Simulated assay, not measured.
Amino acid sequence: MGESVPVSCPTCSRRHTFVVSVYPCACGAPVAPPLARDAPPQPITHRTWTDEWVMVRCAACGRQGHWPQPELGCPCGAVLRIPVRPVNPAGPPREPQESHEPQDTARVRPTLSRRPAAPRPSFHPLTIRTARDVVTAAALYLRWLGFHGIVQAEEQPASGIDLRGPEVVAQVDPTTSPASLRSVETLWLHGLSASAVSVFFSLAGYADDARARADDLGVPLFVMDLTGAPQPVNTPATELVSSGA
């Protein structure tokens, strides 16, 4: 678990305890952005690519890479950017800077099997009436694809990972807003950490930049309708349906 800091929302003054997410470096060591405890959180009113990422150095091997900017959602509706200490340019020689952005994904991303798929029976969808039904329908679909040991989170997890298995992690977005770029990238990082395939299901589809990034990262994207039948919306998803798990 990463370090925690007390956070006071500047909009409503609510107090929270924020725990930073930990991700694996290429060397295998856990890495988390170092929080700037003396700097106040800032409400996010406008997003840019630069603001979505922070530079972090691995203490074990000295590599530098881009990691998701820590954020906290307050019940009042404000989304707060948690300040991070900048990387100290001084220090011992290290390997060339390594980016965790999509350009480096060919080497590190979990790849989907392309072997011929074994015959599968027809998928029998679950009619969706509640947000919970969306998660259950996605779990059924992953099992139909051939993933085993799928475990469904009892409540909405802070990580955003609703479904897990030995070879897969999945996020299910039952809201009426298209899934965001950050959601896709964070899911991919969780899959990278678990050496698992990352799969995304959404009722409302995906923002254009989220879909483009999923193509770069090899994240299968599915949309669901109220019949509970997922439909692939990008090439990685089509390949997954064709090959199975």
Score class of each variant (00 low, 15 high):
L163Y: 07
R182V: 11
F200D: 00
A212T: 02
G28V: 04
G218M: 02
P24N: 11
I44G: 02
F200E: 00
Y141K: 04
L163M: 09
G218D: 01
M1H: 12
A106S: 07
P220S: 02
C12Q: 12
C58N: 06
I44R: 10
M1N: 09
T17R: 13
L140M: 11
H100I: 08
H190L: 06
S193T: 13
V31Q: 05
C12W: 12
W67T: 01
P236C: 00
V5H: 01
A60Y: 02
P93V: 03
E3P: 13
E239F: 01
L140F: 08
G28Y: 08
Y206S: 00
P33T: 04
V172G: 07
P230Y: 06
L203R: 15
D209E: 08
T50K: 13
I82E: 08
D215P: 00
E52D: 15
R115F: 06
V184Q: 05
P166G: 09
W53A: 09
A237N: 00
C74V: 07
H190E: 14
H190M: 07
H100P: 04
R15I: 14
P75A: 12
Y141C: 07
E155I: 03
G2P: 12
L240P: 01
R109W: 03
T105K: 04
P96M: 07
L181N: 07
R109K: 04
V199C: 05
A117S: 12
V169W: 01
T238P: 00
G73I: 15
S202G: 06
A212L: 04
P89G: 06
P178C: 03
A196G: 06
T105H: 12
R63H: 09
A210M: 01
L203M: 15
L217W: 04
V54Q: 04
G65P: 01
D38C: 03
S195C: 08
A139D: 05
A204I: 05
W53M: 12
E95V: 08
T11M: 15
R120Q: 06
A138Y: 03
A138D: 04
S8G: 13
T127L: 15
A158R: 13
V54G: 07
S99Y: 09
C61G: 01
S113R: 11
G65L: 03
R63S: 06
R57H: 02
P166N: 09
E52K: 11
P96N: 02
V56T: 13
